[in-house]
């Protein structure tokens, strides 16, 4: 395995292997000396064309714990700008010795372009491409569910509900694919205009309202972040309406099973898609997700660069 571009590229066995190795990395992270220098001498470049604090820092710490050198490159790019940039940037970074490029880019398919067109031979990790995918987020979400339910990477019988702006969410797409791969029942809901029916072909059952979806008694509920920057352009968007219909409010907490988990990819808009009460509920796994993200990224880097097939 050279690149991680899409969950579609993973077989079930490969996904399970990555989750198992993430578990081992979690153990490393609990040690007093949290390093496992298998990538000493390797260079990992975080190339981020969109703002992101947590994903970038997570990759940075992950690479450092494995002993790699890390370089962060941020660049502003508008989707209208001409495309020569990405190829030249990739080749420049490789010429400077990058063994892996962690790419976040506003265009769907940017990581595929970088990895599959013969531009470079470095590994490419998709850290979010447009509205397409964010595979390490799905892996960390799966790891969180797996650990909480001690599921042994078999999610049969587990029902996961994803709520919010599905249309623009790469987190949702990667989760749809990975959760299905692991055998979960995947359901989703969100505002009608942000929930295209095409998602049903990705193995998702769509519900019209949050309350209706909650009646399905999910074992895990993932609240997607409202992408305010996108919503502000949309005159029809009303925060109070959204909050009323789609927020995990304290009232709605009561509809959740006691043994369920509450998840959010972060950063949270408290009071919008998730209430303070839900974020801090004993069932909330938000901080575990962050910790698991670190483990997952260590495992992915280790797999791609550590000489393991």
């Amino acid at each position: 395995m050279k690149n991680l571009l899409s969950i579609r590229d993973l077989s079930k066995d490969k996904a399970i292997e990555l989750l198992s190795s993430s578990n081992e990395m979690s153990a490393v992270n609990r040690r007093a000396i949290k390093t496992l220098p298998t990538l000493r001498g390797k260079t990992v470049v975080n190339l981020f064309y969109e703002n992101s604090t947590r994903t970038r820092i997570s990759f940075e710490i992950a690479a450092k714990r494995l002993g790699a050198d890390v370089i962060n490159v941020s660049s502003e790019v508008s989707s209208a700008s001409k495309g020569e940039g990405l190829k030249d940037t990739a080749q420049t970074l490789e010429a400077l010795g990058a063994d892996a490029i962690v790419l976040r880019h506003p265009m769907s398919g940017a990581a595929h372009a970088m990895a599959t067109r013969g531009w470079i031979s470095s590994s490419v990790i998709n850290a979010g491409d447009g509205r397409h995918e964010h595979p390490t987020q799905a892996l960390l979400d799966a790891l969180t569910i797996n650990r909480h339910f001690d599921a042994g990477c078999d999610f049969t019988g587990l029902k996961v509900l994803i709520v919010g702006d599905l249309l623009h969410s790469r987190v949702a797409r990667s989760n749809f694919l990975l959760l299905n791969l692991l055998g979960a029942t995947v359901i989703a809901t969100g505002p009608k205009e942000l929930m295209p029916t095409g998602f049903s072909e990705m193995g998702v059952t769509l519900y019209e309202g949050l309350d209706q979806a909650l009646e399905q008694k999910p074992d895990a509920i993932m609240m997607l972040r409202v992408q305010k920057e996108r919503m502000q352009a949309d005159v029809a968007f009303s925060a109070s309406n959204y909050q009323r219909s789609w927020s995990l409010t304290e009232e709605r907490l009561g509809q959740l099973k006691p043994a369920s988990v509450i998840m959010h990819p972060g950063p949270m808009n408290r009071g919008l898609e998730i209430s303070n009460g839900a974020a801090e509920d004993s069932r909330s796994q938000v901080l575990e997700q962050v910790q698991n993200g670190l483990a997952v990224r260590m495992a992915v880097l280790h797999h791609l660069l550590g000489g393991q097939s």
């Binding site: 769907s108 447009g130 995918e133 249309l167 095409g198 072909e201």
Partner: peptide
């Protein structure tokens, strides 16, 4: 336009 364009985010 269709399920595939939705999945691919195009």
């Amino acid at each position: 336009d269709g399920a595939l364009s939705i999945e691919l985010g195009l």
